[in-house]
Amino acid sequence: MYKLEARSVNLYYGEKHALKNISMAIEANTVTAFIGPSGCGKSTFLRCFNRMNDLIDNVKITGDILIDGRNVYKSKIDVDEHRKKIGMVFQKPNPFPKNIYENVAYGLRIKGVNNKAVLDEAVERSLKQAALWEEVKDDLKKSALSLSGGQQQRLCIARAMAVEPSVILMDEPASALDPISTSKIEDLIYELKSKYTIVIVTHNMQQAARISDKTAFFYLGELIEYNQTATMFTNPSKEQTQNYITGRFG
């Protein structure tokens, strides 16, 4: 059984047909990269997996999205509960205007966990996983907004991991960061693979090549090609993919 699966997914923003009949399957404990030019639908598709598109008015989705074989667009499913099982990291670091500790503890608190020992343990574990612990362990009560951009983004990753999701969705997590912070995040993604299934949207093709196992190329709302990353970058089967990765457009 696949970890994540999409079956003929179509998405409309009002009249606009933004995702066209997309099907793909993602195995557990892999890193999958979504690439493609701006507006190709890769972020929109990523947001289908945790139903973030529900927050936008006027969006209609058809087709099935399955996680561990369960259809997440079935009306019975509890969206909030579903999102708790999937972590998400966004384009720009978006820590809450709270202190570092409370940021990481947020996901547990909204689940109703208020036991200090449990929270302490989760905060420490997540910050360690996100390779941020050493830098902040002495001032966990400091405002998260006082951290640097790269630290903020790792904090956001820690925050997503604190609730122990099995999937982490990353929407261009390094696009707002400097090269050193970016490489830290990339190292992190590589290490997290053993525990999580990671899907990452990126603008940066080198990044996709460096960190992902499989790559999917989107163009104008369609999934053009989906293959092993190595194959994709050395020997793409479609001409459009070839053009894109060699930098002829996009």
Partner: peptide
């Protein structure tokens, strides 16, 4: 982006409003 971060963690609407939006 703050709202999305909260919803992404599985917070309900009111949890997001009371814990993130209103304090901000």
């Amino acid at each position: 982006s703050l709202r999305e971060a909260s919803y992404g963690l599985g917070a309900t609407k009111w949890q997001t409003i009371s814990n993130v939006v209103l304090p901000s």
